[in-house]
Design a protein around this nucleic acid. Sequence first.
DNA 1: CTATATAGGACCATTTTAGTCCTCTTTGCA
DNA 2: TGCAAAGAGGACTAAAATGGTCCTATATAG
Lengths: 159, 159
Amino acid sequence: MLKLSKLTDYAAVIMAQIARDPEQAHTAAELAARVSLPHPTVGKTLKMLSRSGLLESRRGSHGGYVLSRSPAEITASDIIAAIEGPIGMTECSHADGDCELMDTCGVADNWQRVSQAIRTLLDCVTLAHLAQSSPLKLPVQLPIQSVTLPSTTGAVREH
Amino acid sequence: MLKLSKLTDYAAVIMAQIARDPEQAHTAAELAARVSLPHPTVGKTLKMLSRSGLLESRRGSHGGYVLSRSPAEITASDIIAAIEGPIGMTECSHADGDCELMDTCGVADNWQRVSQAIRTLLDCVTLAHLAQSSPLKLPVQLPIQSVTLPSTTGAVREH
DNA sequence: CTATATAGGACCATTTTAGTCCTCTTTGCA
DNA sequence: TGCAAAGAGGACTAAAATGGTCCTATATAG
């Protein structure tokens, strides 16, 4: 499924909420209510986002969370990485992994390129994009079909 | 991590093996040896690939598996979907999902577009690409930076 | 008829994930 | 100065997904 974990999903929703009202500090309780999710869970998510430097927190009464950068400077990659760690499709895709199948694998290199492409794609999607409702137009949608891939007879196949 | 499951990983490696010698039928035992993975696991993976129509199987002695189409006509999407089901980053990304957060979410639409972009990307990568060792050049790598995104001040951010 | 394959599914162990809770610290304000 | 409102950190548990094995049935070649 190549799916995000639930927490990552929550994180995106929460970040978008904050992004829509970036001036004020938001408490976990407030966000939990807005997003209809249990307080402890939202709290946990916020802590993770904060630890990764995507949010700044202020403790004590009148505390809460604020974005640490503008929504246009926070990417989908950032959010995903904050919750799930480095983005990569395979074990070996974030270096120094000691996959014992290296020899027999024969696929690693190209998987890594695919991983890289996905990362690049996610780097292009900002929180500002996610938060707004207007359609986000991604570069891969049409142009990709016309790009020349390294020839392997037939190559691109349309769906 | 946005990671493939181990089985999907195996599937890719196994498919690549077969693709490199597409004329012959390959048995689970043979492939297991080539790929240094336990026979039962390889068997299970092959069954899944076969059930999804990516491989044809022949039973009985001298049986085994063959690709059901040419390597250029089998995509990374196909392989992933065979093992993990439909590709999508979020619950709601493959329609009819009844996510109760629909209202409060406000992010769904754009996530779906991102999912779609990834799908498209994976549709462009064929088994032929994966199996060969020469570098696969994907369209998103450089061009994306120069593409105009729907304006949200600043938009693309480089890493 | 027998040896060699796959088909299908049951089953279990392990890991990952989600979610909760408790205690400690910081901060604003009466 | 003391209290209430917040976050920080981490321990813990329950549930689900994953990986892996095994068993029985079926097909096929010789």
